[in-house]
Design a protein around this nucleic acid. Sequence first.
RNA 1: GGCCCUGUAGUUCAAUGGAUAGAACGGAAGUUUCCUAAACUUUAAAUCUGGGUUCGAUUCCCGGUGGGGCUACCA
Length: 596
Amino acid sequence: MIEAKILEKACEALRILYGQEMKPESLGLEKTRKEITGDYTLVVFPLLKISRKSPEATATEIGTFLDENMPEIASFNVIKGFLNLVLSDHFWMKFLLRNANRPDFGIQKSRHDRPVVLEYSSPNTNKPLHLGHIRNNLLGFSLAEILKANGHKVIKVNLVNDRGIHICKSMLAYMKWGNHETPESTGIKGDHLIGKYYVLFNKHYQAEIHDLIEKGLTEAEAERQAPLILEAQEILRKWEAKDHETVTLWKTMNGWAYTGFDLTYRRLGVDFDHIYYESETYLLGKDLVMEGLENGVLVRKEDGSIWADLRDEGLDEKLLLRADGTSVYMTQDLGTAQLRYDDYHPSNMIYVVGNEQNYHFDVLKRVLARLGKDFALHINHLSYGMVELPQGKMKSREGTVVDADDLMEEMFQTAEETTRELGKANELSDPDALKLFNTISLGALKYFILKVDPKKNMMFDPRESIDFNGNTGPFIQYTYARIQSLLTRASAAGYSYEGSEISLNQSLMPSEKDTIKKLYQFQETIVQAGTELSPAIVANYVFDLAKGFNQFYQELPVLKEEDQEKVVLRINICKFTGNIIQKSMKLLGIDVPDRM
RNA sequence: GGCCCUGUAGUUCAAUGGAUAGAACGGAAGUUUCCUAAACUUUAAAUCUGGGUUCGAUUCCCGGUGGGGCUACCA
């Protein structure tokens, strides 16, 4: 990497010029702003204490040293305290020609012994997936790709929440009002059918609560005493007692949910290496708690319940086992963390979970640490923000949930409409056209979600749907398609760009150089995205690349250029850009079409 | 009440403590005998507020204020 070399040489300059040792990472080197001449800029303000000279003099002295001692540097200029370094066109061209046809450019080979376990998706089986799950799934899948590109082995796991009172609610509603209907008999996708009964339960439950309040109960009392909730709790008890009839219905209905989820996952293009089921793990964790009690890191209260007292760490007390010995969510998560660690001995465990669970993960890590689990230090909660609608947060009770299947279908139809209007589907066979609509619609949806910093809440307006122009997936896909079209023409015209030998002493046009520079940044982008666990960094990078390329492509001829050396140079820029767009989009889980 | 996150053009998003705060959509005005106009060019338009640290603050710290979340013997 050229940055490291510049920094190293700059330190040498400081040593020779001012007799001071500085660490390379303490120097401020950044990319030069676009409107200023230069490729990299060294900020010299912090160095004035060492040089005891003016910013201009200091920058000039360092610049002169670098210019004389680094062949890659062609020239420099100084503006105030900013030393702008210009790399030679020779350097950029050499980079381009060496890497344009390397399929593995920027991608690290696997170089870690221990894997990273990445949990994402983790749905409940009582209702279909919605927009919030989509963000989770896309982030999780993309993150796995990014970590792999950084040389990690990644185990993608899904912890399905397939038991508990919420499932019993759907089961109860089905027993009462289901009339034995099935996905087959109704034609309704399994997860949606179950969701229907979950909604139905809540409708009747709310009515009961309403009646009880009218009779003088408080809201809390009404919620606890409503007949339906008592019945649901009875079903939960029967399930835990392995009552045959209850378990059979539970299996049947969960089966419907899984069939439905599989379709949604497949359409979304996400997958898993291992699926954990909570029904198989919910009893875990008790041993850990008992062990912690014996070691004195947990406390037992008078009623027999067991707690972690985190008040000395600025948090509260946290219940881990009820007085009756049953566990809570936290207990299970302690247990599943241990299970996961034992299964894979990972170097890191990443959980893609919404930011409303920040406190939960804070507590989880601290309790595991108290229990003496070193892997607690390597638990990473990728806490992503909520997806908000124009009218606020999605609320299933208010019917404002954006369903995942519906959304993908609507996107598909919009893509089809737009593509047909533009006449771009005219020459395609039906299967090819369908494939294209699918690629474009998913590209639009995925890019829209992933370009936003995961940590931040984001806004989604379904009425405006998603645009296909500007900073969008289809914009980038279109850039790629045009490149492929051009490369086909280039081949037809007999140009061979692989292993091209051309003179490196040509001078580059600004838009050529900008594009090559952007390509150079692919490697550092992958590293940064992996470090920060942020697909948004890749998304914003690839948009910049496509944007810059389009500018180049608009103002300079490629195949129609007369200078044959320039033709080869530009074909290589096109080829390389196409490669990097494809790779970047793959990191986001987005396909690119050869034509559109 | 306590704790956490967050406030950038009309809107949706960017910006390792650095130069004149970038894009996109929307608005205004342009570019097709020319490698795909889902493109390109030009233009108007923003850091909630008051302090502090710093040569330099959208960024770090403190106060105010707006928004969101958590604070379950639910998961």
